[in-house]
Design a protein around this nucleic acid. Structure first.
Length: 157
DNA sequence: GCCAACGTTGGC
DNA sequence: GCCAACGTTGGC
């Protein structure tokens, strides 16, 4: 089982939106970056878990945990002319973009902030893609040691 | 709103 | 295939 970090802007789609979704489940769609597309298409498995990260907001950080309930499948938003993520280059025969379905596992009792993660960036979280210079990908892998370490941060403070 | 970093586009 | 221009991301 793999671990991931999924970024979203809370104003657009935050963890509270997912909490209110039917079955607390939603498609993670609209990804239009090839590297992230490859993760979604090739590497995501049902049962994988992910951190739900809030970006572009007053306090960026990890707000909770999701699990993958459906592995990669073609992103239908690319076929919808009215959708802001429409892409005429993606067809049903040859889909260009992929998505997964995620279900909220739980919200953290507190947001584990980017600042706090950075304080561990040279030790336990060295190499975490989120903390790497220039890292902008909306989905990045998290290894098991990093996953466990971040989970253990939640009860402290 | 700024701007560093990085991806994409398109002319050549 | 190069690379300048442009667009996007996302922290600050």
């Amino acid at each position: 089982m793999a671990y991931w970090l999924l970024k979203s802007e809370p104003d657009v789609y935050g963890i509270d939106h997912l909490a209110r979704a039917p079955k607390r489940t939603s498609a993670w769609e609209g990804v239009r970056n090839y590297q992230v597309r490859n993760y979604l298409r090739d590497d995501f498995r049902k049962g994988d878990q992910g951190f739900f990260y809030h970006s572009s907001c007053p306090v960026p950080g990890i707000a909770g945990i999701v699990k993958v309930v459906r592995a990669g499948y073609p992103d239908a938003s690319a076929w919808d002319r009215k959708n802001q993520y429409f892409d005429a280059g993606s067809t049903r025969e040859e889909p260009r973009w992929y998505c997964v379905d995620v279900q909220l596992v739980r919200r953290f009792k507190r947001v584990i902030t980017l600042d706090e993660l950075r304080t561990h960036g040279t030790r336990e979280l060295a190499g975490l893609p989120l903390l790497m210079r220039g890292s902008r990908l909306s989905i990045t892998p998290v290894n098991e040691a990093q996953w466990r370490f971040i989970l253990a941060l939640e009860p402290s403070h």
